[in-house]
């Protein structure tokens, strides 16, 4: 088990290095001179800038060094949890991201909840009532759900619930009611495909011999489905839920921007618009770590769900 965890941590480091190196490279070739951005932030408008000033700043900030030196320096600082400072506001990147993190976490958890509350019950229901009206309706729902881009769905939800019905606020983050629309947008977006996976996973399990045994024992159908079938069906469902968590972080970038939700996703978009390079690097690093950790959580849950995994682990070490 410890060996396994150690392996996963090693993987985390590799993923983080890969992702950040790639962003670093992309940022390097993106139009926009970081030295000029710093100059504008510190000394005001473009008219007061001289090329001497800019090259002085470039030298001061180490921006004239080759890219791999810059990247190595950045990595070195990461070890001391120093992600640098914003080019625009001069705030420490680390503090800024952590001030935005609770909002993103809140949104992610609420979306996950909505996601699971849609995908699991509907998936189970359409498997148990295979080829019934419910099954066909959910099939259509999935098709619609998959086809809707989140920015469009967000606008439609705002139009209906905020403008037309006036039940929910359009955007902002002053309370729980502000969370409903962004979380629903994100949740529906990723629920559609998973509903289908829950259904097929459930159908697969329902055809197994041990389900027949459970029925032959005289168990209530609710226990056959809810206990015997569901726990087995959960194994692929957890896998896909972990992967969907990644698309959720991806979607958060769009949804946080539309709903003016002050999370890390919106911070990333703002930073990109302002060419705030250290901040972009910080956000990407943060999202990559969250993603790897989510997958680690999924792997750990197999141990709980499937005793055969537990057994193999015990006997491997």
């Amino acid at each position: 088990m410890w060996r396994y965890l150690f392996g996963r941590l090693l993987l985390l480091i590799i993923v983080v290095i890969g992702v950040t190196a790639l962003t670093f490279l992309m940022m390097y070739y993106t139009p926009g001179d970081p030295a000029a951005i710093i100059a504008i932030a510190r000394y005001g408008g473009p008219e007061s800038l001289s090329s001497d000033l800019i090259s002085w700043i470039r030298h001061q900030e180490g921006l004239d060094a080759p890219i791999y030196i810059q990247y190595a320096k950045w990595l070195h600082h990461i070890f001391y949890l120093d992600m640098g400072r914003s080019l625009i506001t001069d705030e420490p990147v680390f503090d800024k991201i952590f001030s935005r993190f609770p909002a993103t976490l809140q949104l992610a958890l609420a979306s996950m909840l909505i996601y699971l509350l849609i995908a699991i019950p509907i998936g189970i229901l359409s498997a148990v009532k295979q080829n019934s009206l419910i099954d066909y309706l959910s099939d259509i729902g999935v098709l619609v759900g998959v086809s809707m881009p989140s920015f469009w769905l967000a606008l439609i939800l705002i139009l209906f619930f905020s403008i037309y019905l006036g039940w929910l606020p359009v955007c902002g983050s002053q309370g729980l009611s502000y969370l409903i629309l962004p979380a629903t947008t994100l949740g529906i977006g990723i629920a559609a495909t998973t509903t289908r996976i829950v259904r097929s996973s459930m159908l697969d399990v329902l055809g197994q011999n041990y389900i027949r045994t459970a029925r032959a024992k005289g168990l209530k159908e609710a226990i056959v489905i809810g206990k015997h079938a569901l726990k087995n069906a959960m194994i692929p469902i957890v896998t896909i839920a972990g992967l969907q968590f990644a698309s959720l972080l991806e979607g958060a970038v769009v949804v946080e921007t539309i709903f003016a939700w002050p999370g890390v996703g919106r911070l990333l978009v703002d930073s990109i618009n302002q060419r705030d390079f250290p901040m972009i690097q910080g956000c990407v690093l943060f999202i990559a770590i969250i993603f790897v950790l989510a997958n680690l959580l999924v792997d750990c849950s197999y141990v709980y769900l499937d005793p055969r995994v537990r057994y193999n682990r015990r006997h491997q070490v």
Binding site: N209, T213, A214, A216, G218, E221
Partner: peptide
């Protein structure tokens, strides 16, 4: 359905071939 459920496993029991596939792998 409820009446036949009470008969299954209670008054009529059944065992199958391939017992390995007939027991749920995730419960003791």
């Amino acid at each position: 359905k409820e009446e036949i459920r009470q008969i299954r496993g209670h008054e009529i029991s059944m065992i199958f071939e391939q017992p390995a596939s007939c027991l749920n792998p995730v419960f003791t």
